[in-house]
Design a protein around this nucleic acid. Structure first.
Ligand code: FES
Ligand code: FES
Lengths: 143, 143
DNA sequence: ATAATAAAAGATAAATTAGTCTTTTATTAT
DNA sequence: ATAATAAAAGACTAATTTATCTTTTATTAT
């Protein structure tokens, strides 16, 4: 559904959200461990997320990644869009160059419905909202 | 959502279904034109679909691709599974190694619901069922 | 000022996916 | 039998995605 990069980005951002709520900044090594991702790869990804303002970072001692208030309110959909673009929310299921109402592919109407539901669902999911379940080990970011 | 290979496979199979209903076998060149795909690439893909029994083929003069009765009843979901595997129907949205009920990721329950709807929708869509709309130019396989 | 820390940046490398081109095999019509 | 047709097979190239490693820059505490 999403690229590896995007999957790591989502897990990392949720992980950072949790740590931020606990009041700490978190370093790349711990993030990599916390979400079970390759360390150097998630570093690259976070660099990019930081440039895009999706996560915040501070260099030097006591530095690390964290989320400001606005970032905390971001949705999963926002992050997917920033990383993978909106192909998954807008693109044609059969790969036509443009999903179009006037020249629809055979599955257009049904596919569009599902795509919409996917978007609504991911748009409602705010990164700051998963903390409690994670704390209580009701949900997981690795396994 | 799906790989390029899978998108081409779906369009090609639907295209072949249409031609079969019109009573003709169809060659690779015409398929490539009909669905706007690279000719050699769709050839490779069809080779594979043929080996898997998703489409039927005949060599030599008057040869080409067609669908038998069983293939006509196949669903889009069947083809997606055959080409891309069932990751899109079973895999975790955040990329955990295994989607799991007992150790779910933060979006598991919602994501699972959407994934299920996607499957049901694609499973209901049989390749033989699109012919009429295509004939009447209500739907399209290229643009 | 200096050393330590931690992210940013940059340069490669490996793996996967997408796409192309050539040769071989099977089938049919003459 | 032979030539023509059309898919099957195989070898290769290109592009993209995923991943690794090294160097630089910014920040902090001593
Ligand atoms: S045209 Fe294919 S999904 Fe809209
Ligand atoms: S565990 Fe992530 S979708 Fe089920």
């Amino acid at each position: 559904m999403f690229s590896k990069t995007c999957e790591y980005a989502l897990r990392a951002t949720i992980f950072i959200a949790q740590k931020t709520k606990e009041g700490e900044r978190i370093g790349i090594k711990e993030i990599a461990k916390g979400i079970d991702s390759p360390e150097h790869f998630i570093a690259k990804i976070l660099q990019d997320l930081s440039r895009k303002g999706i996560v915040q970072s501070a260099k030097g001692p006591n530095g690390g990644f964290y989320l400001d208030k606005a970032s905390m309110k971001q949705s999963i959909a926002d992050i997917v869009k920033a990383v993978d673009g909106d192909k998954v929310f807008q693109g044609c299921g059969l790969g036509l160059k443009q999903c179009s109402e006037t020249e629809p592919c055979p599955i257009h109407h049904e596919f569009k419905r599902i795509r919409k539901q996917l978007f609504v669902m991911l748009d409602k999911s705010k990164v700051g909202a998963f903390t409690e379940a994670l704390e209580n080990s009701l949900t997981f970011l690795k396994r």
